[in-house]
């Protein structure tokens, strides 16, 4: 292909990627080193509000921003270096806890608590998603043609549901005396409160994620299964390989690139776990890194938000994903190079 044609095809998407991915990333990266603050003054203010039977007036010292001549708040931008990162990571407290081997204390610091949950969540759901996806794909592949269509349709359903809606519906099944909790209580004849402690919520969140994402793995694996070399399979049967051996030595090696692909996507997605936290309102017990960023960005009643710490936390999340992906990417790269020789 001529370079010009190539450029004409690729150009627009490169431009859009630069505009919508690279530029915001650079902007967030820069923002994490600066803080923007209003210039404050402290003045005495008298505030009168409704009371019974008459108004109550309070005079107090208030810190309020200075308004410039254009009627806007006067702000100043300050370079703070790594301070926002320090504020997120709290290295002093973390180090003190670590050197005392006191992990419970370490896990009361927001970032480390979030990291612990995010990593557990990511690494536990990964094999489950791959395994369940593969199992459904193999099962569907062996099912008779008559019922294959309906089975595929039903197994895809969880994937179609909007994540937050899915999480909310599972929450409503289990919260308080929800249908499922009521059933479990009747079955085990004991009082159950799924949302009263962290580990049950964590289990529910993982269950939800596997339920939601496994269909995606299934579809990919099912497509891959259609391309397995039938001759190899037949010769394996003639050689006396059992069903399990065929799966282990013929099918899985053939699907390996797809397994790596699914793992990459899943690692990236589940490291950014967020819908589950909001859907299950687990903030009291479990928070994730992405939720931490969101929390920094959410303005409170008085309109404050911590843009700098949010930027730092977002950058840290990205670094975390890159570190997680490195082993898989290196493997793909090696295979790729090996294939060329």
């Amino acid at each position: 292909m001529k370079f010009k044609t190539f450029a004409a095809f690729v150009g627009p998407s490169i431009f859009l990627m630069l505009l919508f991915i690279a530029a915001p990333l650079v902007s967030v990266f820069l923002q994490s080193f600066y803080v923007t603050q209003p210039v404050f003054e402290t003045v005495e203010v008298e505030t009168c509000t409704p009371g019974f039977p008459t108004q109550t007036c309070v005079t107090e010292l208030k810190t309020q921003p200075i308004l410039g001549e254009d009627g806007k708040v006067v702000t100043e931008v300050r370079y703070v270096g790594l301070e926002s990162y320090r504020n997120v990571l709290e290295p002093d407290r973390a180090w003190a806890a670590l050197s005392a081997l006191d992990f419970n204390t370490l896990l009361t610091i927001d970032f480390w608590k979030a990291l612990r949950f995010t990593l557990t969540f990511t690494l536990v759901t990964l094999p489950l998603v791959v395994g369940v996806g593969l199992a459904i794909a193999v099962a569907v592949n062996n099912a008779s043609r008559l019922i294959r269509g309906p089975i595929i349709f039903v197994s895809l359903l969880p994937f179609i549901i909007t994540p937050v809606i899915g999480a909310l519906s599972i929450r409503w099944l289990f919260i308080g005396d929800g249908i499922m909790t009521a059933f479990l209580e009747w079955w085990l004849s004991r009082d159950i409160a799924m949302f009263a402690q962290g580990w049950t919520i964590e289990l529910l969140m993982m269950f939800y994620r596997v339920w939601h994402v496994a269909p995606f793995a299934f579809v990919v694996f099912y497509a891959g299964l259609q391309t397995v070399n039938q001759d190899t399979l037949e010769s394996a049967i003639i050689d006396g390989a059992s069903r399990w051996e065929r799966l282990r030595y013929v099918v899985i090696p053939h699907l390996m690139p797809l397994i790596v692909f699914i793992s990459l996507i899943h690692l990236m997605d589940s490291y950014r776990v967020f819908e589950e936290i909001v859907g299950f309102s687990s903030q009291a017990h479990r928070i994730s890194l992405q939720w931490l960023t969101y929390d920094f960005l959410t303005p409170d009643d008085s309109g404050n938000r911590s843009i700098s710490r949010a930027s730092a936390s977002a950058m840290l999340t990205m670094i975390g994903i890159v570190i997680l992906l490195v082993p898989l990417l290196r493997k793909t790269w090696r295979d790729h190079k090996g294939g060329r020789v």
């Binding site: 309020q64 009361t108 903030q283 409170d300 404050n304």
Partner: peptide, 23 residues
Amino acid sequence: ASSQMGLMHTALGNGVADYLTGA
């Protein structure tokens, strides 16, 4: 209500649960 009370409210909202759960 004030700017600093907004920040305090957020800090309390994220922090008080740790005592109630016994952490």
